[in-house]
């Protein structure tokens, strides 16, 4: 449901992005950056709420933090894989550096679009988002 505004080189299409991270400061940073880059952001700081939104809405990409209290990123990925595996390619995972290479490889095998290590590079994040859209 990406709202295509124009396709000129300077102005990218406006994308609809979901951010799931329990750290409010990180979601604030990412959403204000994406806002400024002319994208629409939906922010949730809770995993369960995030999964509900994924089920009921169509996003162009989903930025997902792995480590969250109660319902975490792993559980969300599990649920998506069971219920709607076609959404998997929209997911960009934010990982702590303590995540092992095996786990990252496992996510990639499931079809996850990107695994970005924290502290994230915002340019890298933006290019991962636009990669999914194209």
């Amino acid at each position: 449901m990406s709202k295509t505004l124009s396709k000129t080189k300077n102005q990218k299409s406006r994308l609809n992005i979901l951010i799931i991270d329990d750290n409010e400061q990180i979601t604030k940073l990412i959403s204000s950056f994406l806002d400024m880059s002319n994208h629409d952001c939906t922010v949730v700081n809770d995993g369960k709420e995030g999964l509900e939104l994924i089920k009921t809405n169509q996003f162009d990409s989903i930025i997902l933090d792995l480590a969250m209290p109660e319902f975490d990123g792993y559980e969300i990925i599990d649920a998506i894989q069971k219920e709607d595996p076609l959404q998997m390619h929209k997911i960009i995972i934010l990982t702590a550096s303590s995540i092992s290479i095996d786990i990252i490889q496992k996510f990639k095998n499931l079809g996850v679009s990107a695994c970005l290590q924290k502290p994230i590079d915002i340019d890298q994040l933006l290019s991962s988002i636009t990669d999914i859209a194209t």
Binding site: N23, I26, L29, A96, P119, I120, I122, D123
Partner: peptide, 24 residues
């Protein structure tokens, strides 16, 4: 160290953001 790491990420992000002339 994990607790220290968490606030570093937004700091680094905002530094990066502030350097973006076209946005900030």
């Amino acid at each position: 160290s994990h607790e220290l790491k968490t606030p570093i990420m937004p700091i680094m992000g905002y530094i990066q953001l502030l350097k973006k002339e076209e946005l900030m």
